[in-house]
């Protein structure tokens, strides 16, 4: 199927030029990075920009790097780049594990993490990870830079805090100082390529005053979100059966899944409780130094 409407294609090689084009076209300009969502949206006539601005050759835009105690993921970072980044697997296991579940090799070779949070479809895999790390989104426009907390980034399905004349330079977060671990639990219908029916990122930290827990769900609400009530329930406590039971009960207050082509509301609600329990137990094991193979529970 071809794309029927016409547009101008620009491939700026520097930021000044890219920002000038964005300021010129505003809502009528679409940024192109990996294109794995963009081209599908064009084929489906969901978008029909006058200008497509390809940022892959903008020299100032970066891929992935460690900056002190901060991990910076630039606009050009593909999921394959994340998987090949040694520090990601060593220090940012949660990120690495989530990146591994994104679609398949051929998509990960092109698709960028920044594109994922800019598409902002409710099932994205990268958002819960960034929410757990309390990441910051860095945007740029001719007017200057903005730093936006990831919690304020997702406004509605496919809608973010990005302004028409802005582009995302990257996203960054600080590696927690405490001993910590995490895991990403994704339910898909089969391994590879599938969108999440439900996803859960967990970060478990060993603080001086006990354990701290961070949870973020994806694909079970209009936007990915942290689970504040469960975090509060578990704060400072060591896991036991009763506590896990209470935490699972709270899932009903934290998520608002719908029924769609991939899963039913009821099944999503049920499976999120199962994912919470399994993910917590994996995190506890990992914090104790046990090696637990990245898990992809049920589907796959």
């Amino acid at each position: 199927m071809s794309i029927t409407h016409e547009f101008n294609y620009f491939r700026p090689d520097n930021l000044t030029e890219a920002l000038k084009l964005l300021a010129q076209y505003r809502e009528k300009g679409e940024i192109l990075a990996g294109g794995t969502d963009h081209v599908v949206n064009m084929k489906d006539d969901l978008i029909s920009p006058e200008a497509v601005i390809d940022i892959k050759r903008v020299k100032e835009l970066k891929t992935i790097e460690v900056q002190g105690n901060r991990l910076f993921i630039g606009a050009k970072t593909t999921f394959t780049d994340i998987l090949n980044f040694q520090a990601a697997k060593e220090s940012f296991l949660l990120l690495w594990e989530a990146a591994r579940t994104v679609a398949s090799v051929g998509i990960r070779n092109r698709a960028t993490l920044i594109g994922n949070i800019c598409s902002a479809v409710p099932c994205m895999d990268s958002a819960p990870v960034l929410l757990c790390y309390d990441a910051t989104v860095h945007t740029l426009s001719k007017a200057g830079e903005r730093d936006i907390p990831i919690r304020e980034w997702f406004l509605a399905p496919r809608k973010t805090a990005l302004k028409p004349e802005e582009l995302v330079r990257g996203v960054s977060f600080i590696l927690p100082e405490e001993k910590h671990t995490g895991c990403y639990v994704k339910l898909g219908r089969y391994g590879g390529e599938d969108l999440a029916q439900a996803g859960l990122a967990i970060l478990m930290l060993q603080k001086e005053n006990g354990f701290a827990y961070r949870f973020a769900f994806t694909s079970v609400g209009p936007v990915p979100s942290r689970a504040a009530k469960i975090e509060e329930l578990l704060a400072g406590k060591e896991l036991n059966d009763e506590l896990i039971r209470q935490a699972k009960k709270l899932v009903e207050e934290e998520i608002s899944p719908i029924t769609d082509i991939r899963s039913s509301r009821e099944y999503r609600m049920h499976i999120c409780k199962v994912m919470l329990e399994r993910g917590l137990l994996v995190c506890r094991d990992r914090l104790q130094g046990k090696s637990v193979e990245s898990l992809r529970i049920l589907g796959g």
């Binding site: 294609y9 491939r11 192109l32 294109g35 081209v39 599908v40 090799v105 051929g106 998509i107 092109r110």
Partner: peptide, 12 residues
């Protein structure tokens, strides 16, 4: 690198 040629503009 393996890529999906259906998701890439020729001009890219």
């Amino acid at each position: 690198r393996s890529v999906r040629s259906c998701l890439i503009y020729a001009i890219e």
